[in-house]
């Protein structure tokens, strides 16, 4: 298999304005991603899992071309990613459907951007609506659809313009457990039908093991790739309860072990940040009272 996406020594910093009470504003660079190296093969289902705030979404933005790495590069088919393009499709956690468009018109949106003719657009959109199992709901507006249905529309929209890579940013995190499981197996079915390369970001370990052929585990901030784990299941879409397979349980535990410390560290970071911010606030209050 050929390499589809290659992430090479990518670093990303953010400049965060920090107002330290009565002191003057200082701009501190915060490292979000540090030396990320990852190769994703053609047609592979790659899952990236990490604690919250580890820069998973930053990495996805870089892959989408919505922002640029400060160092290193990301190549798609050997060419450096220059900006957003229809060769990559994104599915967001919050669906990002256009509320003034029907399900069908939402799916057509990307095709419109691609310059596909009206008739062809409609036919193609209908096809993808069918693929995600929403036939009969074409003319509903997003507010008339449930969360799971909205996410199906969003997936259809991203697939419709036929991107080479599908980037998914915790797409099922906002759904209830049952809908999530249904959509997970649906996604596997769609992946097998369309043979797309998928990069799927999640903080759910079970989701990661269930979906990914390989799972990249990230560290807490600054995000690095801690380890990439192979998940050697042949057919995921079989009827068996994969989740209770001993191999599955073993891999899940392995990832859990890798993540345990990271999650703890991430939580401590979060705590100290909040505490710090709180201190600043009370300081500022004190100053105000004195002044």
């Amino acid at each position: 298999m050929t390499t589809k996406i290659s992430i090479q020594q990518v670093h990303k910093y953010f400049r965060v304005k920090r107002n330290l009470g009565h002191l003057k504003e200082t701009v501190q660079p915060i490292s979000a991603l540090q030396d990320i190296n990852l190769e994703v093969k053609q047609g592979e289902f790659m899952v990236i899992v990490g604690p919250s705030g580890c820069g998973k979404s930053t990495l996805l933005d870089l892959l989408a071309g919505l922002s640029k790495p400060n160092r290193g590069q990301i190549r798609l088919d050997g060419n450096e990613i220059a900006g957003p393009n229809l060769d990559r499709g994104i599915v967001f956690q919050q669906y990002a459907l256009f509320p003034w468009k029907t399900a069908l018109a939402n799916v057509e949106f990307g095709l419109e951007a691609k310059g596909v003719g009206r008739k062809e657009r409609r036919a193609s959109a209908l096809e993808y609506i069918q693929l995600v199992g929403l036939a009969g709901f074409e003319n509903r507006y997003p507010h008339e659809l449930s969360g799971g249905m909205k996410q199906r529309v969003a997936i259809a929209r991203s697939l419709a313009y036929d991107p080479e890579v599908l980037l998914m940013d915790e797409p099922f995190a906002a759904l209830d457990a049952q809908t999530r499981e249904t959509l997970q197996s649906e996604l596997l079915r769609i992946w097998e039908a369309t043979k797309k390369t998928i990069i799927f970001i999640t903080h759910g370990i079970e989701e990661a093991v269930y979906l990914g052929q390989r799972v990249a585990v990230m560290t807490s901030r600054p995000g690095r790739i801690k380890q990439v784990i192979e998940v050697p299941f042949e057919s995921r879409t079989s009827e068996d309860d994969l989740r209770s397979n001993p191999e599955f349980v073993k891999i899940r535990h392995q990832i859990w072990d890798l993540l345990k410390d990271e999650v703890q560290r991430a939580q401590e970071q979060e705590k100290s940040k909040t505490l710090h911010a709180g201190n600043l606030k009370s300081n500022a209050k004190g100053v105000a009272a004195n002044g």
Partner: peptide, 28 residues
Amino acid sequence: DPLLIKSARSMGLSPISLFRKVIIPASV
């Protein structure tokens, strides 16, 4: 909604079509 803008941008929309197809209908 910035997410709508992000989503449209990720589909490679030019600033003008972004304005016409997303910003204007969203602000109606």
